[in-house]
């Protein structure tokens, strides 16, 4: 195997945001259309009564993640191609840290709130 498969910097790398061969307005137009579609669905779902209430936050988060994917692919031109391996690896590490931060904070704080005595009782005991 040649060195082409290893993710190290070479002439075959692409900078994030640079579209491989030909930069086209079409890519941005598709991205804009998809982004507007997903945004529209988000705003619709948030205000409608057609959907079962408790499912709405989950649906909104899923739609937001989908729209971030659309932005990454069509606006930032992050692809799965070999020239993008370094960009994707950095992105994956960033996403890992973001997930650790969010789930860790929420998990710990939820349990703290759950285990803590209600504030008014605590105040009464300190008196």
């Amino acid at each position: 195997m040649s060195d082409d498969d290893t993710p190290e910097f070479g002439a075959s790398d692409a900078a994030p945001g640079d579209e491989g061969s030909q930069a086209g307005v079409a890519t941005y137009l598709i991205g804009l259309g998809l982004a507007f579609l997903l945004t529209g669905v988000s705003f619709f779902i948030a205000q409608t009564h057609l959907v079962w209430g408790p499912s709405i936050p989950v649906a909104l988060i899923v739609l937001a993640i989908a729209q971030m994917g659309v932005h990454l692919v069509f606006f930032l031109h992050i692809t799965t191609g070999p020239d993008n391996a370094n960009n994707v690896l950095a992105l994956a590490f960033g996403v890992l840290i973001v997930l650790l931060l969010l789930t860790g904070s929420l998990w710990i704080m939820f349990h703290l709130n759950h285990n803590m005595m209600p504030m008014d009782q605590l105040m009464r005991m300190q008196r």
């Binding site: 910097f9 790398d13 994030p16 960009n87 992105l91 960033g94 840290i97 931060l101 929420l106």
Partner: peptide, 26 residues
């Protein structure tokens, strides 16, 4: 490519900072 990659790393660190604000908001 090197400048773009470096700036990409900065942007990811910026997004991590925002995720801390998101966590505190949540």
């Amino acid at each position: 490519i090197i400048v773009g990659y470096g700036f990409w790393i900065f942007l990811l660190s910026d997004i991590i900072m925002f995720s801390a604000f998101f966590a505190s908001y949540a």
